[in-house]
Design a protein around this nucleic acid. Structure first.
Ligand code: SF4
Ligand code: SF4
Lengths: 157, 157
DNA sequence: GTTAGTCAAGACTAAAATGGTCGGAGATCT
DNA sequence: AGATCTCCGACCATTTTAGTCTTGACTAAC
């Protein structure tokens, strides 16, 4: 469960690739187009296009038109958090779908729901986790993730 | 994104309710049937039935047939983790769907995928988080969640 | 100016997951 | 034994997702 969509997956892959290309030794600030990313990562071109469009609309990446055009990262890799990317693709994080539904279906049992508050805490924790990780963390070959401690108990104070 | 299904939501609500009924002041070890839970929480009866079935199959709750039958918690509330419940309902946690797919669709780009390891770390963190929380935490009226520290940076050591 | 390469936007189809419904099997009590 | 109350498993409808296709607009090179 809790699996993120293919599009989100593609988005991360694309950003990781773009970052690697841009900040590798020689080819600095190079522009890459949709086709290149798609072929290099074996993902359907047209679908990736839509993903990149969404990312561009959120200004996570910049688009450059015309021949020799393409996309380029809009910020430093360390400033692009996973949370941002995922939100751009799949909308705001709502683990219990009772926080972003403003008008319709107010979840009948919302009034006396005892699991809502706890779940919200979980959601916040996940969000913090996703926000603490950036594209830069994915660029390095080594898995240099941040989270490390807290094996079985952890988490609490 | 990352929203969990209605069924999972219902499962948690049902367990929370069962726990509250069982361990309230007087009615100890009482058996509750599907209908009661459904009506008390305003959720469709038949759907809840399926949810409870799944929970029973995983031995999270015990089923008692016949008139005056129903369900009862299989363990102490503090021993039923959210992770267990969610897994029972929605299958194993697979944030990147490249860990539980054994046979088919081996995700073409798995070989040279640079985002896989980082994502796995995220997944593990989420799992730890979900495992550190139990039904007991949801039973108390007050939101007594565990996670608290780590505001912006946190997470790491 | 022309042309070719690029992004942008939408409609469309197919497949899967989800949400919800049905009648039947088993056990308990009278 | 019979009636009744329960769980159980198969079934259908709807929504979401993944993927494809077409069209158009823009930009840079020639
Ligand atoms: S049930 Fe409680 S938690 Fe689940 S959506 Fe409705 S209010 Fe939010
Ligand atoms: S792309 Fe990388 S991360 Fe996403 S599923 Fe395939 S292997 Fe796992």
């Amino acid at each position: 469960m809790l699996k993120l969509s293919k599009k989100a997956d593609y988005a991360l892959m694309a950003l990781q690739y773009m970052g690697s290309v841009q900040f590798s030794d020689l080819t600095r600030a190079r522009v890459v187009n949709t086709k290149e990313i798609a072929e290099e990562n074996n993902i359907p071109v047209e679908l990736l296009a839509k993903v990149l469009q969404a990312l561009a609309k959120q200004e996570i990446i910049e688009s450059h038109n015309g021949p020799k055009g393409g996309y380029i990262l809009g910020h430093e890799p360390r400033d692009i958090t996973i949370a941002k990317v995922l939100e751009a693709i799949e909308g705001p994080l709502g683990i219990a779908d009772c926080y972003h539904e403003n008008d319709h279906s107010p979840c009948e049992q919302l009034e006396h729901c005892n699991i809502r508050t706890p779940l919200l805490k979980v959601q916040e924790s996940i969000y913090q986790l996703l926000s603490s990780m950036t594209i830069e963390d994915m660029m390095s070959g080594q898995p240099l993730i941040i989270v490390e401690s807290r094996k079985t108990e952890g988490v609490n104070s």
